[in-house]
């Protein structure tokens, strides 16, 4: 074999273990559950190959699933907006701080490394009936008995914001760092106020980062089932909780396959639209 041919083969040898693993453990399984979603669960609980649209009809038309899907998208949207409002100024501060930027970023990354379940659980100690907030309010004499603040939609959103905020800040920070600072000076010398130059120069240039952060927050938020399971009440189930119920509790796998594909279709469309307009490159910048 010629040297060129060997040289050309080498990267494929290096890539093949990863590509094989992802094909066999992600793409093939996804195709499999697509087929599976047309199969049927028999009365005895076995699954038999068939071609039936029953699962899809149930998943798409049943108002129970539809309401939860809409509610999930609503919760993810509110979470994303709150993350943007909280995260943008913080990212701006870090990007423009004169002090130790690396330290500020490291501090922000720290919660990333801290267990998701612990971070979610910790809100119980803050908002629970014997949590920090109630204890303080009681001690101050502002209330006579503890208030029930947990297990509702607001606490689910709170937990999600706490989980996702670093993703937003990092992405916005990366795009703010990439902006040429002289542009702001130029705007200033042409008579723009600080606020004007922010609105017309900095904000538009940082939109790719804001979009990448928002996509991550939305997709990760809409796919979660731990946060609503820990911080939500019985009526705050999100779509992923339905999938879990169908697969683990009811053992209705064809239905579970259908529901997860529905979730994938909705969130996948979003990712595709994003990729079409902005490309996934921005997303990877923020992730690494």
């Amino acid at each position: 074999m010629s040297i060129e041919a060997r040289e050309a083969r080498q990267p494929w040898i290096l890539l093949s273990p990863s590509l094989t693993a992802i094909t066999l453990l992600l793409f093939v399984p996804l195709l499999f559950i697509l087929v599976y979603s047309f199969w049927l669960r028999t009365a005895v609980g076995d699954v038999e190959p068939a071609f039936s649209l029953e699962n899809w009809r149930d998943a798409v038309t049943d108002p129970f699933y539809r309401d939860i899907l809409l509610n999930t998208l609503k919760i993810a949207a509110i979470t994303t907006v709150v993350c943007a409002l909280m995260g943008y100024p913080a990212a701006y501060f870090i990007a423009r701080a004169r002090g130790n930027k690396a330290f500020l970023l490291l501090l922000l990354m720290l919660p990333f490394w801290i267990s998701y379940i612990i971070r979610t659980m910790s809100w119980i100690y803050i908002l629970g009936t014997s949590g920090a907030l109630n204890t303080t309010l009681l001690w101050l004499g502002l209330i006579d008995e503890p208030i029930q603040m947990l297990y509702n939609e607001t606490t689910v959103i709170l937990g999600l914001v706490h989980f996702l905020l670093p993703f937003m800040v990092l992405n916005v920070y990366v795009s703010l760092e990439g902006i040429d600072r002289t542009l702001e000076d130029a705007a200033g010398s042409l008579g723009a106020t600080k606020w004007q130059s922010f609105l017309q120069v900095v904000l538009p240039l940082s939109l790719p980062g804001l979009a990448a952060g928002s996509l991550l927050c939305f997709v990760l938020g809409a796919g979660t089932y731990i946060t609503p399971a820990v911080l939500g009440g019985p009526r705050d189930a999100m779509f992923a909780n339905l999938v879990f119920e169908a697969i683990i509790t009811q053992l209705n796998w064809p239905l579970g396959a259908t529901l997860s594909l529905l979730l994938l279709a909705v969130l996948g469309t979003l990712v595709m639209v994003y990729n079409h307009f902005l490309g996934l490159g921005q997303l990877m910048k923020g992730l690494s």
Binding site: V219, A257, L263
Partner: peptide, 8 residues
């Protein structure tokens, strides 16, 4: 989404 990956 991780749930979908998990189910598949």
């Amino acid at each position: 989404p991780e749930v979908v990956l998990a189910v598949a």
